[in-house]
Amino acid sequence: MKIRLIGTPAECTALTDALFTLPDLFIGSVSEPYPSHRHPAHVRVYIDAYPCRDIDRGGRP
């Protein structure tokens, strides 16, 4: 699944770090921050994540 975060760089970093601690979620990739189109102080970060149960069944990655 693709997760899009929009917020300040600090908010996006904090949430990305928190997602890495979830035992049932595999983080496949995290994009570099992109400027937000709506708010100059915000960035966009894209995360590819997979539930671990899907991986155990032969799913991605």
Results as ranks from 00 to 15, higher is better:
Phe26Cys: 13
Leu25Glu: 07
Val43Ala: 02
Val43His: 00
Ile6Arg: 12
Ala41Ser: 15
Ile47Lys: 00
Glu32Asn: 07
Asp48Trp: 04
Ala14Trp: 06
Leu22Pro: 02
His39Ile: 15
Phe26Trp: 13
Pro23Thr: 14
Pro51Ser: 10
His37Ser: 15
Pro9Trp: 08
Arg60Ala: 13
Ala14Lys: 12
Thr8Gly: 02
Glu11Asp: 13
Ala18Arg: 13
Arg60Asp: 10
Val43Ile: 14
Ala18Asp: 13
Glu11Phe: 07
Pro33Met: 07
Ala49Thr: 05
Tyr34Gln: 06
Gly7Pro: 00
Pro35Ser: 10
Phe26His: 15
Leu25Cys: 08
Arg44Ser: 04
Ile47Arg: 00
Arg4Trp: 02
Arg44Asp: 03
Pro61Asp: 10
Thr13Trp: 02
Ala49Pro: 03
Leu22Met: 11
Gly58Thr: 08
Arg53Val: 10
Glu32Ile: 06
Val45Gln: 01
Ser31Gln: 04
Thr8Val: 04
Leu15Gly: 00
Thr16Pro: 02
Ala41Asn: 14
Leu5Ile: 05
Tyr50Ser: 08
Ser36His: 09
Cys12Asp: 02
Phe20Gln: 12
Tyr46Glu: 04
Glu11Ala: 15
Tyr34Trp: 05
Asp48His: 08
Leu15Tyr: 06
Leu15Gln: 04
Ile27Phe: 05
Pro40Leu: 15
Leu25Ala: 07
Arg38His: 14
Ser31Pro: 03
Ala41Met: 14
Ile47Pro: 00
Cys52Leu: 13
Leu19Trp: 02
Pro61Gln: 09
Asp24Thr: 10
Leu22Arg: 11
Val45Ala: 01
Ser36Met: 08
Asp48Ala: 09
Pro40Gln: 14
Leu22His: 10
Thr21Gly: 05
Val30Met: 04
Leu15Asn: 01
Leu19Asp: 01
Ala14Gly: 10
Glu11Pro: 01
Gly28Phe: 11
Gly58Arg: 05
Thr16Tyr: 03
His42Gly: 04
Gly59Arg: 13
Leu19Ala: 03
Pro33Val: 05
Leu15Ala: 05
Phe26Leu: 15
Ala41Ile: 12
Ala14Phe: 07
Thr21Arg: 14
Phe20Ser: 06
Cys52Phe: 07
Ser31Leu: 04
Ala49Val: 06
Gly58Leu: 11
Pro33Cys: 08
Ile3Asn: 01
Met1Ser: 14
Glu11Arg: 03
Gly7Asn: 02
Pro51Phe: 12
His37Tyr: 13
Leu15His: 03
Met1Leu: 09
Tyr46Lys: 04
Ser31Trp: 01
Arg4Ala: 06
Gly7Met: 02
Arg44Phe: 05
Met1Ile: 09
Pro61Cys: 10
Ile55Arg: 14
Arg57Ser: 13
Ile47Asp: 00
Met1His: 11
Tyr46Val: 03
Val43Thr: 06
Ala18Pro: 03
Lys2Asn: 10
Ile6Trp: 01
Val45Tyr: 00
Val45Asn: 00
Asp54Tyr: 11
Leu5Trp: 01
Ala49Asp: 08
Asp17His: 10
Gly7Trp: 00
Phe20Val: 04
Arg38Glu: 15
Ile55Asp: 04
Pro35Gly: 08
Gly7Ser: 04
His37Met: 14
Cys12Gly: 06
Asp56Gly: 08
Gly28Trp: 12
Arg60Thr: 11
Ile6Gly: 01
Leu5His: 01
Gly28Pro: 05
Ile3Trp: 02
Asp17Cys: 08
Pro23Tyr: 12
Ala10Leu: 09
